[in-house]
Simulated assay, not measured.
Amino acid sequence: MNIYKQKLSVTDQVKRLEDKGISFNVFCKERAEDYLKSNNYYYKLTSFRKNFRKHPDGVNKGKYVNLDFAYLVDLAIIDNYLRGIILEIALDIEHYSKLKLLHRLENDESEDGYSIVNDFMISLGQNRQVLEKRILEKANSSYVGDIIQHYNGNYPAWTLIEIVSFGDYLRFYKFCADRWNNKDLLNDFYLMKDVKELRNAAAHNNCILNDVTIKESKHQTNHAVKISLKSIKRQRNDKYLAKEKIRQIVTLLYASIHMITSNGVKRKINNQLKFLKNRIYRDYDYSFNQKLKATFDYLFDVIDIYY
């Protein structure tokens, strides 16, 4: 079924929001129009409304409860900060995972760095051509093109991990973990699978908090992550880790303290998370939305455990 929605002017967008029960008491309509023209667009901003409940019946049936335009703006700003922090942490995790992998390779006298890549390529079967094509598409890149041209398909491990995507890097990481029967690397791989999805969302500027209270998890929480949260009541962990985005954020934070070896980088992350915590409740305590507030409080407790 095709859904067709009429294009709306900014004035019409504000009217549509008002019809849905969104108020403009804190953020007046004129200011809201200016915001939609200069700061954020309707589709993205209004996605945060999913965290608010609607009247189940009565004259206001289907309209939002206690939702002011200002709260959507606030969540959009918080979400922007969160995406930046997520992306930076994910990049740090990727870097230190590469460091760990290469150290393991360097300390193995049976590995020359080339044969493991060749065996990995063979293990891909028909997908080998797909990966080789993706690599060759970067041959003219200002950043990795010289590496690709220099090695001309005969890549050692330390160059392969620089020229492939994060997804392909994780496939190679899993191959190495299995090849060496290394449970530690294998656990890192499963942590980074969650990191990858969250990282990609942040890198593509997708909203994180737009449905954070409702989206059910598709996967189980990593066992090591669960163990690390034992100071929080099990029922509370079960409740919030059952939400896909919460589980991924928690996994990202756990992976950062488990995989990053630099104390300086961890101090940087600690400062970023401290700023985020202060920013979330800076303007509103979200007591008017207990479900959202409880979700934020849970994340605060997780941050306090790790950092």
Rank of each mutant, 00 (worst) to 15 (best):
M1R: 11
S9K: 14
Q13W: 13
R16L: 14
D19T: 10
I22G: 00
S23I: 09
K29Q: 15
R31I: 13
L36H: 08
N39F: 13
Y43C: 02
L45K: 02
S47L: 05
K50M: 06
N51Q: 08
R53K: 15
H55F: 07
H55E: 10
G62I: 05
N66L: 11
A76V: 04
N80V: 07
L87C: 02
I89T: 07
L91R: 11
L99H: 13
S110A: 14
G113N: 00
V117R: 01
D119W: 09
M121Q: 05
I122S: 09
V130D: 12
K133C: 14
R134K: 14
K138W: 05
K138M: 11
A139Q: 15
Y143S: 13
I147H: 05
P156S: 13
T159E: 12
T159K: 05
E162D: 12
I163N: 01
G167L: 01
F172V: 04
K174C: 13
K174G: 08
F175M: 09
R179M: 03
W180S: 01
N181Q: 08
D184K: 10
F189D: 09
V195R: 02
K196Y: 07
L198G: 04
N200K: 03
N205F: 12
N206M: 09
I208T: 07
L209W: 00
N210E: 07
D211P: 03
E216Q: 12
Q220K: 14
T221W: 05
T221Q: 03
H223E: 15
K230I: 06
S231L: 00
I232K: 09
Q235D: 14
N237S: 12
K243M: 05
I246H: 01
Y254N: 02
K268T: 10
K274Y: 10
Y281A: 01
S287F: 04
S287E: 09
Q290G: 12
K291Y: 10
K293I: 09
